[in-house]
Amino acid sequence: MVNILVVDDDPEIIDLLRLDLELMGFQVDSANDGMNALKKAEAKIYDLIVLDVMMPKLDGFEVCKRIRANRASASVPIVLLTAKGTIEDKIRGFNAGADDYLVKPFEFQELMVRMRALFRRTGTLNKEVNAPKKDEVLSAGEMRLIPSSLEVVLNGQIIKLTPTEFEILYCLMQHVGEAVSLATILQEVWGYEADEDVRMLRVHVGGLRQKIEVNHKHPLYLQTVTNVGYRLNPVPTEIPTSL
């Protein structure tokens, strides 16, 4: 059974999402403020968290940061819900660790598309259907990517990734040493026609660099290819590529 936590201070939204999600066969828990959401996220590991931004006690950005800071829940997919749709708010949400961002009001089918894209990344739907699962360990130079735990091993250090960070790195490791276009990464990672600004991708790449690079401002592994996209180098280059 796929377990989902819905967090919103509007009881009507919680009731509507609970009804629709349970009809789809999901197990749904709910919380109506940030503190309650954190308690539930610490007590149980969910397959997905749908998290409102504007809430009492703790807003969704802070809740997201704290969930990511907890190793047990660090890789749980998070979709932020908000009435604000500016690129600044989206960047703030992604910097907090969110995997996707949905602006209110929204259609339930749009939420389902984004949820299934996240489930595809984490293999969650394998609980429900006999879908192929990425269970191999990928290697590229000093890196080893472990799909089963959403971790990368680099120089003997185990680094926990968010689902989106993992999928970006997985995509690039399929093309080690090659320039991969932004359009290709968006399609392979999000799994649908992404209409968001490419800054969404750049924010996630920035978070990934902070985890795998000695100096994220001068990346040696995950490099920018001007006017194309990104390239993963299996061995650090001597001359850093600028952001």
Rank of each mutant, 00 (worst) to 15 (best):
residue 199 R to F: 06
residue 207 G to V: 09
residue 165 E to C: 09
residue 41 A to P: 06
residue 237 T to H: 14
residue 104 K to M: 13
residue 199 R to I: 12
residue 238 E to F: 03
residue 204 H to F: 06
residue 199 R to S: 13
residue 243 L to S: 14
residue 95 N to L: 10
residue 179 A to N: 12
residue 43 A to Y: 02
residue 242 S to C: 04
residue 191 G to N: 04
residue 21 L to A: 11
residue 3 N to F: 04
residue 61 F to C: 11
residue 94 F to D: 11
residue 48 L to V: 03
residue 19 L to F: 09
residue 52 D to H: 03
residue 90 K to S: 04
residue 5 L to Q: 07
residue 222 L to P: 11
residue 3 N to Y: 05
residue 46 Y to R: 00
residue 170 Y to N: 15
residue 160 K to R: 15
residue 18 R to S: 14
residue 119 F to D: 03
residue 92 R to I: 07
residue 63 V to S: 01
residue 20 D to V: 05
residue 110 E to H: 08
residue 198 V to F: 12
residue 47 D to N: 11
residue 46 Y to G: 05
residue 73 S to E: 03
residue 190 W to H: 14
residue 111 L to Y: 00
residue 114 R to L: 05
residue 144 R to P: 15
residue 213 E to D: 11
residue 219 P to Y: 05
residue 217 K to M: 12
residue 3 N to A: 10
residue 56 P to L: 04
residue 76 V to R: 02
residue 164 T to A: 07
residue 65 K to F: 00
residue 61 F to I: 15
residue 62 E to Q: 09
residue 218 H to L: 15
residue 196 E to N: 08
residue 27 Q to E: 12
residue 136 E to K: 15
residue 96 A to F: 04
residue 83 A to G: 15
residue 195 D to M: 03
residue 203 V to P: 04
residue 134 K to V: 10
residue 184 T to A: 12
residue 202 R to M: 13
residue 21 L to Q: 03
residue 209 R to K: 14
residue 103 V to Q: 00
residue 174 Q to A: 09
residue 34 G to H: 07
residue 167 E to I: 04
residue 126 N to Q: 10
residue 211 K to A: 02
residue 49 I to L: 06
residue 39 K to P: 01
residue 58 L to A: 01
residue 219 P to C: 11
residue 166 F to E: 02
residue 232 L to G: 02
residue 45 I to M: 09
residue 123 G to F: 04
residue 96 A to Y: 07
residue 184 T to D: 11
residue 37 A to K: 06
residue 91 I to E: 10
residue 115 M to C: 04
residue 13 I to Y: 01
residue 236 P to H: 04
residue 158 I to Y: 11
residue 231 R to Q: 10
residue 130 N to E: 12
residue 154 L to D: 02
residue 168 I to S: 00
